[in-house]
Amino acid sequence: MSPQSRSPRLVVDPALPESISSVLRSAPETLRAVRMGDIPSARGPDPAKLFPTAAFLILIWALTSLSGMLMTLVLILVLTGLRRLTADPTARRERRRLRTAVDHASRFVLPEDLDADCGTLLRRAQDATETVLDSRVNRAGLLDTIDNAVTLPDQIWQIATRLVRLSSMRAEHRRIVPGTPPPEVAEAFSPYSKALEAAARSLTRRVQALEEYAAQVRRADEVYHSYRQLEQLSERAPQYEELIADTVGDELAVPHLRELTAQAQRIRDLFAESMEGARRAAGHLLRAEGPGR
C-alpha cells in the first residue's frame, strides 16, 4: 500500500518525557476531542452539596463546640478522599489523559491536522524513518554518522509541525481567496500563492532527503547479510585452503585461493561502498534541515 493511500501516524514531540508521551500515545481519541474543543469544564464545588454541608457544620458548631465542628469537617474530608481513591480506575485514567492532552495540546500532531498533500508527505517521512530505525545496520550500530534514535524522531517532529502550519495557511488562503481572482488583479495575489508553493517544495525536498537516506540504508542492509556470512566463512578460510590444497593439484590450488580472496574482497568493498553511501545521505539529510530548525 502506497503512502498516498495511508494516513500518517500520530506524532508526539520527542522532547517530552516518556511518562507524558506514553499517555498521549495511548489516547488518540482523547487527543482528537481536545483538538476539536470538546473539553469538559473543570469540576468545581457542587453548590447543591456545598451549602447543605456548610449548614450541617454550623449546626454541629452550635450543638457542640468549635472543636466538634472541626472534627466533623476532618471526617468529611477523609470520607471524600476515600471515595476518590476507590472511584472507578478507568474514569481516573481518562481524566488523567484528558488533563495531559489539554496541558500539552501543542506537543502532538494528529492526521486530522494536515491536508491531504501534507498528510502524504508526513507518511512518506515516517516510512523512511521506520526503514532506517528497523534496519540491521542501524541495530548493529554501524550508522555512526548521526544518532538515528535521537535525530530521526526530531526530524519527524520538525517536518510534522511545519506541515501543520502549511496546511493551516493553505486552508486560510482558500477561505480568503476561494476562487480565481480576475486577471487584472491576479498578479497581486501571486506572491501569497508562491510563498505557499515554495514552502511545500522545501518540505518535499526535506522528505526526499530522508527517503534517500532510507534507500541507502536499505541497500547497505541488503549487503550486510552477505557481509556477515562472509565474515563467518573468513574465520574458516584456513580449512578451505587446506581442503583445496589436499584435493586439487598445486597448479589449480593457487587460482582457487586467489578467487576465494578476490570474492571476499569484492563483498567487503561493496559493503564499505554501501555504508559510505548511507553516511553521505545522512550528511545531506542534516543539511536539508536548513536555517529554520
Rank of each mutant, 00 (worst) to 15 (best):
S2H: 13
P3N: 08
Q4N: 12
R6I: 10
R9L: 12
L10P: 01
L10F: 11
S21I: 08
V23D: 07
L24G: 04
R25I: 03
L31N: 11
L31Y: 08
A33S: 10
A33Y: 03
M36C: 09
A42M: 12
A42R: 04
G44K: 08
G44Q: 13
D46S: 08
D46K: 00
A48S: 13
L50V: 05
T53H: 10
A54S: 11
I58K: 02
I60H: 05
A62R: 01
A62K: 01
L63C: 12
L73E: 06
V74N: 02
I76T: 04
L79K: 02
L82T: 10
A87P: 04
P89Y: 01
P89H: 01
P89N: 01
P89M: 03
A91C: 03
A91R: 11
E94K: 08
E94Q: 09
R96H: 14
R97F: 08
T100E: 00
A101Y: 07
V102M: 11
H104A: 06
A105M: 15
D113T: 05
L114W: 04
D115C: 12
D117G: 10
G119T: 01
G119S: 04
T120W: 04
T120A: 14
L121M: 08
L122N: 01
L122V: 11
Q126Y: 05
R139F: 12
A140P: 13
L142Q: 14
L143W: 00
I146M: 02
I146C: 02
T151D: 13
P153N: 11
P153S: 05
I156R: 00
W157E: 08
A160T: 10
S167H: 03
M169R: 06
R170V: 13
E172G: 08
R174V: 14
P178I: 13
S193T: 12
K194G: 03
K194T: 14
A195M: 14
A195I: 06
S202Y: 06
L203G: 11
T204M: 10
A209L: 05
E212S: 13
E212A: 15
E212K: 05
H225I: 05
R228H: 06
R228A: 14
R228P: 00
E235I: 14
E242L: 08
D246F: 07
V248D: 15
G249T: 09
G249H: 12
L257V: 15
L260F: 04
R266H: 11
L270Y: 03
E273V: 14
S274Q: 06
M275H: 05
E276I: 01
A278Q: 03
R287M: 12
R293C: 05
